[in-house]
């Protein structure tokens, strides 16, 4: 076994929605939404606590029909760590290389897409992106200010 760690995908307080070749995850704890591409999703799904990193690489390889290195799995795990999508943080092992160097090496060698986890903070307030209904600051003033606190004095002097 190349690595003694057996990562476990987090399952609590997550809303998961699969779309073709991607998985969307909303983390209720952090109020962040994540989009895992196919490679990252395969790694995440195979983190069952029973597979080592090498076994995950084998699993992803069998699913994609391509040779998959441990480094590629580590790259995914690194991002899953950062986005809090594993039960416990896993110490990433790029075998002495920096993440940047590992990424370069994997990128040149890998046939399958590099794992990508894209993240965005979800709106906490339904009105966050909405106008308060005022058009200018002078409209908001007689309204006891902007009640949604979304009446920013941006460069144009508009309420937003």
């Amino acid at each position: 076994m190349n690595n003694p760690q057996y990562p476990v995908a987090r399952s609590t307080n997550l809303v998961v929605q699969e779309v073709p070749n991607e998985v969307l995850i909303f983390d209720i704890d952090t109020n962040k939404a994540h989009c895992l591409n196919k490679t990252a999703a395969l790694v995440w799904k195979s983190c069952d606590g029973k597979r080592s990193v090498s076994e995950i690489a084998e699993f992803v390889g069998s699913e994609t029909g391509e040779q998959v290195s441990d480094d590629l799995v580590w790259l995914a795990i690194d991002q899953l760590n950062e986005t809090n999508l594993l039960e416990d943080q896993v110490t990433v092992d790029f075998k002495g290389q920096s993440r940047r160097d590992a990424l370069k090496k994997i990128g040149l060698a890998s046939v399958i897409a590099l794992p990508i986890v894209a993240s965005l903070a979800a709106p906490q307030n339904a009105l966050a992106n909405m106008s308060c209904g005022c058009i200018t600051i002078t409209d908001c003033n007689p309204l006891d200010g902007c009640p949604t606190n979304n009446c920013g004095q941006d460069v144009s002097g508009l309420c937003r």
């Binding site: 929605q17 779309v19 073709p20 070749n21 991607e22 998985v23 969307l24 909303f26 109020n31 939404a33 994540h34 989009c35 895992l36 591409n37 894209a118 965005l120 979800a122 709106p123 906490q124 307030n125 339904a126 992106n129 909405m130």
Partner: peptide, 19 residues
């Protein structure tokens, strides 16, 4: 954008998302 990326970007504008 891919479908997933597009949903990610659109949910920011989805009014009942937080609820």
């Amino acid at each position: 954008l891919t479908t997933g990326e597009g949903i990610l970007e659109t949910l920011v504008h989805t009014i009942p998302f937080a609820r």
